[in-house]
Design a protein around this nucleic acid. Structure first.
Lengths: 139, 139
DNA sequence: CGGGATCCGGTGTGATACTG
DNA sequence: CAGTATCACACCGGATCCCG
């Protein structure tokens, strides 16, 4: 059923408070999740933790490009939302293990749907960006 | 159900350059899409356009909370990526119609998967936030 | 080892005013 | 109607230093 705007999931319409929330802040859960997932490192961390539990520096080494600060912040955010579980082991050198909660693991499914879309259409998008350059905005 | 993530992460693992890109900028298509979709208004606009084509002020009225600037920027971004088609009608008062391209419409499907997840688990997340508010120091 | 604190720049977002 | 221009500001993300 690949119709333009026929197969549009009614769910999304349901999610949208028809006359979109006028309030300053939006409480739309969809937007909320999207903005969390839309940050720079959350998805990477979630996927890595989806493979298996990791320790802090293990994640840090696995994602060389991330700073300790951002790794910490990302993990804190995920922990706060109940997507990641943090367990501290009182070993000699302190060690902390992070793992996905069932909730966190369940996020991988819808995430993979979007990932598949992204991977599939990325070339098209990239090409479109090259063509549709409107006004070479100077600065 | 005991969270059987059947064959889910496989795709995401494929998407992830195993030892995550060390380069300053990431060209991971997944992250790229996520960051676009993660902005504040893109999803709302896409969903509205998924219902039917809209004109500029029609969208503006439909999303009272958005500023003209942000609406324009959002539409430009979507247009640039080939997700939205912009058509200008040389009527007496100028009118412009925006509609999803087939590519844009196809995004609604994976998006709805994530939306469903968000809506389903939003209460859990909210509750988790209320509990895990802050753990400055776990005793 | 696993962070926290601080500074700092880029950008996303918003309010307002102006224009074809 | 459909934008553009400008200013301002919060917040994200990075670098660095420091601590238990």
């Amino acid at each position: 059923m690949s119709a333009p705007h026929t197969g549009v999931p009614a769910l999304l319409n349901t999610a949208l408070p028809s006359p979109v929330p006028r309030d300053e802040h939006d409480q739309c859960p969809v937007t909320d999740v999207l903005r969390r997932v839309g940050d720079k490192w959350t998805v990477v961390v979630v996927v890595l933790l989806g493979q298996r539990p990791h320790r802090f520096n293990e994640l840090h080494r696995g994602i060389e490009a991330i700073s300790q600060r951002m790794l910490t912040r990302t993990l804190r955010g995920l922990e706060q939302d109940g997507l990641v579980h943090r367990e501290v082991f009182p070993t000699n050198p302190p060690s902390v293990e992070y793992r996905l909660t069932p909730l966190g693991a369940s996020l991988l499914e819808p995430l993979s749907a979007l990932a598949e879309w992204a991977i599939t259409h990325q070339p098209t998008i990239a090409a479109s960006r090259g063509v549709n350059i409107r006004q070479p905005r100077d600065t």
